[in-house]
Design a protein around this nucleic acid. Sequence first.
DNA 1: CAATTGTATATTGGATCCAATCTGAGTTAA
DNA 2: TTAACTCAGATTGGATCCAATATACAATTG
Lengths: 221, 221
Amino acid sequence: MKLDRIDIRQTASATDLVFEALRKAIIEGELAEGEHLRQDHIAQMFNTSRIPVREALQRLEQDGLVTTQRFKGTVVAALSVSEIEEIFEFRALLESEMIRLAVPSLTREQLEAARANLQAFAETTDPGSWGEANRNFHYGLYEAADRPYHLQIIRSSLDRVDRYLRAQLTLTDGAQRANREHMAIFEACRKGDAAEAADLTRAHILDAGRSLLSILEKRRG
Amino acid sequence: MKLDRIDIRQTASATDLVFEALRKAIIEGELAEGEHLRQDHIAQMFNTSRIPVREALQRLEQDGLVTTQRFKGTVVAALSVSEIEEIFEFRALLESEMIRLAVPSLTREQLEAARANLQAFAETTDPGSWGEANRNFHYGLYEAADRPYHLQIIRSSLDRVDRYLRAQLTLTDGAQRANREHMAIFEACRKGDAAEAADLTRAHILDAGRSLLSILEKRRG
DNA sequence: CAATTGTATATTGGATCCAATCTGAGTTAA
DNA sequence: TTAACTCAGATTGGATCCAATATACAATTG
């Protein structure tokens, strides 16, 4: 009997699993900023030794999601107001350029997918799902730009501020406004107006940033 | 007797040291792309166990400088032509914006430092030092923009292509051209013309990218 | 009582050991 | 001949153990 070779190799290491789980927890705000991440504790949660945990923490630190002090440990990174401000400015620059590059190449299928994602965002009532719906809409459009490195950096910059952004969507009328802005961006894309899509995307991100900063200033004094 | 408190704590872990050394070796092109990085071998070089080596490799992978396959090991990352092309495009976008933000805030001291770095680059004959002199000139100017996150991403994007860029500076008249372009950028900064400095920086980076790509296409066929 | 010192415990950094997987040379069978 | 199989060595992934440091709290001293 001749069997096809089936690859049953495990593709994910323990390090990968721990990294992804912690990354998700930080991005979604389940781990509060400043919270201590004890190696032993995390290792027990994942039923592994501390080795994969430490490797995952190294990766997270490289992504700016945690900060480590030698012999003291690792805590969830806390961003200052000016750091958050800067990252929104960065995202506005990069994502507006990305949509400009994407618009001329958008296929009918990609536009249809964007419309569906737009709809999904509008219909999402669970605040915990807004973040993902938001990403789906924007990143779906960016795919057409065919710039994987740009997209990777865009993802990484959103990762750093996503937990704050989710708070902004939840605590204010941010989700409604985001939805209106998404519709305008989509319409510009549909028309093939790259410059307008870029301008709207830029304004969309800077708007969210300003709204978020006003919340933070109230909260932090 | 009252002594000032002196902090004799070791600030650098073995992981830090290994990471920095490997990063430098990759950026400077001492490790060829595709070269296998054996944990055992590196551990012996640094007189440590494999644990800090593995942690350093995790960081390097997160920065895109190496790629790892489970159970197979880690190799120095090799970029495709289109990846290199994209990163130069990314750098042109980001660094032109950075200099635009920097110019209005440039102090006399920063301009003087830039002039000195310009001179240093021009007088550097050792190809191995061009990379650093180049960074000193550009990043010195960017400091004035007071955007640490932008600068971090700029560094990281240059890290990925620096070894190719150094080859381009060495193998062609790249260094001479770079020097002329640096002088023009400096002059625009001195005049306070942010838009021109941005345009020149954009052209400077795209020029180097095009020159590099033509070399690569010859080499790789 | 306040400030300092000693000490026990928790936690991290690193070394060593074992298990899982890959690789490649030699062997066998169609 | 050539493709598949076997097995030993090399290499990576992970667990366990030990050392170095931090932290909290009791003890001590002025």
